[in-house]
């Protein structure tokens, strides 16, 4: 098939596709057509209404912003020295210090010391390693 035949075949294909498509458009049911008409009316009602959606919420938005500002400004805030540090925070602070982490790493060793000290009546651990 030469190039001219190929172009002609493309055109014939496109023409048939267009005919079928137009038939399917013409065959749209009444309910669908009705919905399209309603959609069109809604769209036409929006002509030139670029900012209307935002503008209709502007008063409510302003009131909400004012209320938030009032709460922030007039709510008494506690002084720093009045703040109580929760116990959990204190525990976390102890746990997260460097020394404590070292202790955790050597927990087995300290456990052995403790056990050995109890066994030897507080004389300290015996060196039985190795």
């Amino acid at each position: 098939m030469n190039e001219r035949d190929d172009i002609a075949a493309d055109d014939a294909f496109a023409a048939k596709a267009k005919t079928l498509f137009d038939q399917s458009v013409d065959g749209l049911d009444g309910e669908t057509r009705s919905r399209l008409t309603r959609s069109r009316q809604e769209a036409l009602a929006a002509v030139g209404g670029g900012g209307s959606r935002w503008m209709q919420w502007a008063p409510a938005g302003g009131l909400a912003a004012a209320a938030v500002l009032a709460v922030v400004v007039f709510t008494p805030t506690p002084q720093l020295d009045e703040l109580e540090v929760p116990e959990v925070a204190t525990d976390m602070e102890i746990l997260l210090t460097e020394d404590s982490l070292e202790m955790i790493e050597d927990l087995e060793f300290y456990s052995w010391i403790d056990f050995d000290a109890e066994a030897g009546d507080g004389e300290g651990p015996t060196n039985n390693v190795g």
């Binding site: 919905r35 399209l36 959609s39 069109r40 809604e42 769209a43 002509v47 030139g48 670029g50």
Partner: peptide, 22 residues
């Protein structure tokens, strides 16, 4: 999907009318 297609066409018409009618 016809229902969703109808919604998309409506959205497109509203956007064109609102922003590009002029």
């Amino acid at each position: 999907n016809r229902d969703d297609a109808l919604d998309l066409v409506q959205d497109s018409m509203i956007k064109l009318a609102r922003n590009y009618a002029d």
